[in-house]
Amino acid sequence: MANRTSRGLPAKLGLALCYVAFAGFVLFPLVWIFLMSIKNFGDIIAYPPRFVFAPTLSNYAEILFGSEAERASGQVPDLIKFLMNSVIISGGAVILSALIGIPAAYALARRRDTTSDKLRFTVLSFRFAPELVVILPLYVIYSRVGLYDTYVGMILVHQLITLPLMILILASFFRDMPIEIEEAARVDGAGIWTILTAIVVPIARPGIASAMMIAFIFSWNNMIFGLVLAGGNTRPVTMGILQAMTFDQIKWGVMAASAMVSAFPGMVAAVLFQKQITRGLTLGAVK
């Protein structure tokens, strides 16, 4: 029997070329930055670019273990502090979003009327608005109420990223769950909160995990909030890149290494949880 998907050789070659071109388009910047991060300064500024060079880990050593001066004084290197800040801000933002977003998504999923449709759209619209629209007024407000450069302030502003994602992904997920199970629980005597905590959340655990993962990556990758609303205490890792622009020079190698380190968690998560993330992002799109 002929395989319906079998193609002629030219078609296969063409397809392969497309794949290679796309992979190159996506991966080239990543590879370029990676190569830059393991070059010394001389190799980086060489023209034409050098693809054969003696690799060095000194850039990574500088950002992860500190410059010689920092090591001498026993200071924690900046990037490590920024990494910790990012973990606190993105982690905190995702946990807060889960606490608010799970009940909200459940309500949106199970209350099917025009009010809930409008609310869903409102939540979605947070994702339409560019962050630049809110960032300047927020800067003023944050300075006045003392939220500037605080973890609480950063976690709150990151809700603009994480909360809509959580709500929209989970609402689709909850909507696809058979309602009879929840009705059985109601007949069994469970109230709405018991149904949510004892039935819905345990069943939806995979969906909740992928929603949290996606929200975490989006939050981690954000830079603008850190740029405007974070100071020395709460600067996230995405801001670490700018630290390489010093008064007297731009440390290109250090900048590249910082970029690699800050992108690392997102890339690892994307590789490890590819399936769940794809599922999370396409939930509700199929049905």
Binding site: I181, V187, G189
Partner: peptide, 18 residues
């Protein structure tokens, strides 16, 4: 439903899968 003390068997069984 809680106050009515009725038990219901559903067509899809609706067991708690976890």
């Amino acid at each position: 439903p809680r106050d009515r003390n009725v038990a219901m068997v559903f067509q899809s069984y609706a067991l708690y899968p976890h």
